[in-house]
Design a protein around this nucleic acid. Structure first.
Lengths: 298, 298
DNA sequence: GCTTCTGATAAGTCAAATTGATTAAAAGTC
DNA sequence: GACTTTTAATCAATTTGACTTATCAGAAGC
């Protein structure tokens, strides 16, 4: 014979709360009803799941193991239902999206209206944060999907690349290199390079480019955001690397020049990430198509 | 809301058999009862799982995906029940054990009586075969547990080492080395080494030892079993490597001498292997304790 | 000693799964 | 072309079993 999912729900509820009464309340059933189901489950499995001391409920060692399996099973059932919902109506309901600060202000203004138009039943809830924080929230189940740079260390998540975002060099308009059409890594030699503060994955990627070019970061200066960084560059404090995504917006600053690298230009990879167990992976790939620039352009 | 496990069982049955009638028969319910449950499931999930043509049942693309998840869920439920059975009464019921031919005749005669004595409710069903064949059977679910040498390529299984089985050198009693107490690798130089035929993992391990010792296999001879190999050695055709496990039995051959290697002697690792998803892993480790020589000796 | 927890028990209720009989449609058979 | 067979759906009746309320017995706190 087989236990029912409901019995397993009750089991997990009692294990979580350490009380039949509290568990019954949480499951919206009466305590005797829940007790009966637990007893039936114990009979079915042939072992005692709880020690009842008249005063306190203690889970047995065997019960602990069964509870763990029950949790996985219930999660699987929830995923099945969620997968069905996705299949019957993809991209509807709530989608909690995390975006890093060096993407959000540049991609979202074009993206969100397109999403609203294409998937009007999708309710996007945004959260801006740095990669490490977003990944932690994703794995804890407080976010559904991340939009970020895939070069960062992404442990325990599944991801899909969307497009390359090439770096360019931003400098004061008066800078000697400002008149050049294209730059090589080596042209940066001797420049004072300004970067974002710690924690931004863009900082790490820019540092990697500097490493390769043999340039060092300017001491005593780290900006907390890209707009600030650009202002400092425009004010003549140095040069910086700017992702193409940000150029259209940030290059409007007065006294700023932006010059691209020669091919092959350094780049970061913009992509999506989700929990490997998420039943919505197909949905996310579909949504990703809206985010690719060639699609935005049409 | 949540589907019930029973509904998922019915779903899988219909998907497997392509017929409501056949599925109902297999589930021991009436066809209307099963139909009703499938309809309810479709309503619950909000999608059509089957296309009914009045004549033939076709599963939809969405249904296919749900069925796959349902299968996993049902397997998980079965594993939970199985785990409970193991917890309440470990080492009872049927255990289908696969053993390789270079272990079976030497370890089982002592092991099986001990198992019968210690776990009288355990019904051991034996199957002898080479590693590759046994692993395939294990993964297909036709065996529960393997007893073999862990040096072999074991993909997709979980394993646990039991003990080291050191190699010794078997030779004709008249051989010049037969009088030595211990041998080094280098003493084998110039010898004609006889080995088992292809497919035996013991052959690969012995070859590795020969490689290290710089000795080559004798051409034109490969034995199909250890006893044959030992007979050939006793008849003067050459020398061979014999695992300690086999020495007690095989060294009884007339005109045969067996000499151990100096420390560190080459060895193979005898261990157990099972499916990573098997709920009986704890049980297997328990059984493994009976197989360790120090335990056999008491 | 009283109250107030705890979980187990008993009896009755009710929703829902199931059954058997039947129907409608499609495909094969003569 | 009429007949048989087989399909899944439908309907009414039945049974099952999860659920409820009311109650009990033991343990702890005041």
């Amino acid at each position: 014979m087989q236990p029912t999912l409901r019995q397993l729900e009750y089991l997990v509820a009692v294990a979580d709360r350490g009380s039949f009464h509290a568990a019954a309340r949480a499951c919206h059933v009466s305590q005797p009803g829940l007790s009966a189901q637990i007893q039936q489950l114990e009979g079915l499995l042939g072992l005692r799941l709880f020690e009842r001391n008249r005063r306190r409920v203690l889970i047995t060692a065997e019960g602990e193991q069964i509870v763990q399996r029950a949790r996985e099973l219930l999660a699987g059932a929830a995923h099945l239902v969620e997968a069905a919902r996705v299949l019957s109506a993809p991209l509807t309901g709530r989608l909690r999206l995390g975006v890093i600060p060096t993407i959000a202000p540049y991609l979202l203004p074009q993206l969100l209206p397109r999403v609203r138009e294409r998937y009007p039943a999708l309710r996007v809830e945004l959260r801006e944060g740095q990669t490490a924080e977003l990944v932690a929230l994703l794995l804890r189940g407080e976010l559904d999907l991340l939009l970020l740079a895939l070069e960062a260390r992404l442990a325990g998540v599944e991801s899909s690349a969307l497009f390359r975002d090439e770096f360019a060099v931003a400098m004061p308009a008066s800078h000697p290199l400002a008149a050049r059409k294209r730059l090589a890594d080596s042209d940066l030699a001797g420049e004072s390079i300004l970067l974002l503060e710690d924690g931004h994955c863009l900082r790490d990627q820019a540092l990697a480019v500097c490493d390769q070019a043999g340039v060092e970061e300017a001491a005593n200066f780290r900006a907390s955001s890209l707009p600030t960084l650009v202002q400092m560059v425009a004010a003549g404090s140095g040069v910086t690397l700017l992702p193409s995504l940000a150029v259209a917006v940030e290059a409007r600053a007065a006294n700023l020049a932006v010059v691209a690298f020669r091919d092959p230009a350094p780049y970061r990879t913009i992509g999506l990430a989700w929990r490997p167990t998420s039943p919505r992976a197909d949905e996310f790939r579909l949504l990703g198509e809206l985010m690719i620039p060639s699609h935005r352009a049409d």
